[in-house]
Computed example of a mutant assay.
Amino acid sequence: MRIISYCADSIVEAAQNGFFDWVLQQDADIFCIQNLAIAEYKLRDDVYFPRDYNPYFFDAADGKSNGVAIYTRQLPKAIMTGLGFLDFDMEGRYIQADFDNISIGSLLAPSAYDGNDNEQIRKNQFFEQYLAHLHKVRNKRRDFVICGNWNIAHKSIDIQDVKGNHGVSGSLTDEQQWMERLFHEEHYADAFRLVNTDADEFSWWPGGEPGKDGWRVDYQIVSERMIPKVEHGAIYKVQQFGKHAPIIMDYDYELPESAF
C-alpha cells in the first residue's frame, strides 16, 4: 500500500505547478491533501477529480482556508469528517476513510506561527483533546495511518535553523513533549523516521525556497500494529509544487478489494 500526503496551501496552485500530473504517476493507493484554500464546489476542472480515484473533501467553514481531502482508489466503507471537538473542528480539519480493518486520515492541525498567545493556547488545547482521542481509538480493533501537517517539528533534527527558530510555535518544548507522549505512551510512530534518520530531511520551507529554513512538520503517523509494516519512505523534492513537499510511504499492507 502506497500513501502520499501533501499540504498544498492551495490545491489550485499545486495543480498549476503539476502536482496532479505527478501524483497520478506514483501508483498510490491513497493520497491526502491538506489546506486546500478553496471550497470543493468551486473546483470545476477535471484535474481535481481523477478518473481512477474517489475524492472526498471536508471544507473549511469559510470555504477558503484550511479544507482537507482524501483520494482513494478503493471505495471506503465509510468517510468520517471532523474529530468531534466542537470548539476546534473549524480550526483543525480532519477527514478519515475507513476500510475493513484500517483507517486513513488527512489532518491539518491548528497553527500559531504568527506568535499570537491566544492562538498558541488554542493549539495546545486542540492537541490535548487530540491525544485523548488517539488514546481512545488505539484500543479499537483497527489500524490507523494519520497523514498531514501537524504543525510541530518533533526534534531539533527536524528544524534546519534551530537557533533562529527558538521559541517559535512548532518548535516549543511543550509541543515536542506532546509528540514524545504520542510515541512513547500511546505507542504511535512517525513512519518516515522508522526508515530514514537523516538530518537534512525537511518538508516545509516557510519562505518557499527549499534549502533555507526547512522544517519537517508533515508526517504519516501510524498506530502500533502498523509499525512493522512500514517498508519505505521519502520526501519528494525533485519538483516544487508549493512551500511543502509530498511525503511518500510504502506499507506491507494490502487494502481489501471494494465490495461495492
Rank of each mutant, 00 (worst) to 15 (best):
residue 223 S to H: 09
residue 131 L to T: 06
residue 171 S to H: 12
residue 186 E to H: 10
residue 176 Q to M: 13
residue 218 D to R: 13
residue 244 H to E: 03
residue 208 G to S: 13
residue 196 N to E: 13
residue 184 H to Y: 14
residue 158 D to T: 09
residue 196 N to T: 08
residue 196 N to W: 11
residue 73 R to S: 01
residue 12 V to T: 15
residue 22 W to H: 10
residue 61 A to Q: 14
residue 246 P to V: 10
residue 142 R to W: 08
residue 121 I to N: 00
residue 46 D to P: 01
residue 225 R to L: 05
residue 109 A to D: 07
residue 128 E to D: 15
residue 19 F to G: 07
residue 194 L to P: 01
residue 106 S to A: 14
residue 76 P to F: 00
residue 235 I to T: 09
residue 192 F to I: 03
residue 142 R to D: 03
residue 186 E to F: 13
residue 121 I to D: 06
residue 65 S to E: 00
residue 142 R to V: 01
residue 10 S to I: 14
residue 206 P to L: 08
residue 185 E to M: 10
residue 168 V to W: 03
residue 189 A to C: 08
residue 131 L to F: 15
residue 102 I to G: 08
residue 35 N to I: 09
residue 110 P to Y: 10
residue 7 C to M: 07
residue 240 Q to S: 11
residue 47 V to W: 05
residue 6 Y to E: 06
residue 56 Y to E: 08
residue 59 D to F: 01
residue 115 G to A: 15
residue 165 N to Q: 07
residue 98 D to H: 15
residue 237 K to A: 06
residue 45 D to V: 03
residue 218 D to V: 13
residue 4 I to N: 02
residue 105 G to R: 07
residue 121 I to Y: 05
residue 139 N to C: 04
residue 55 P to V: 04
residue 225 R to I: 00
residue 209 E to M: 13
residue 175 E to I: 04
residue 8 A to F: 02
residue 125 Q to H: 07
residue 113 Y to V: 15
residue 24 L to P: 03
residue 13 E to S: 12
residue 233 G to H: 11
residue 240 Q to W: 00
residue 252 D to I: 10
residue 115 G to Y: 13
residue 162 V to C: 09
residue 89 D to C: 04
residue 260 F to N: 13
residue 194 L to V: 02
residue 147 C to T: 05
residue 201 E to C: 09
residue 213 D to S: 15
residue 161 D to E: 12
residue 256 P to R: 02
residue 177 Q to A: 11
residue 212 K to L: 05
residue 196 N to Q: 11
residue 126 F to M: 07
residue 88 F to D: 15
residue 85 F to G: 04
residue 92 G to Y: 07
residue 251 Y to C: 02
residue 247 I to R: 07
residue 73 R to K: 15
residue 82 G to P: 00
residue 95 I to D: 05
residue 31 F to D: 01
residue 157 I to Y: 11
residue 12 V to W: 06
residue 67 G to A: 12
residue 168 V to I: 11
residue 73 R to D: 01
residue 226 M to A: 07
residue 3 I to M: 11
residue 70 I to Q: 03
residue 245 A to Y: 09
residue 178 W to P: 00
residue 252 D to H: 15
residue 106 S to E: 12
residue 110 P to C: 09
residue 149 N to F: 01
residue 176 Q to T: 05
residue 153 A to Y: 08
residue 77 K to Q: 13
residue 184 H to T: 14
residue 97 A to K: 08
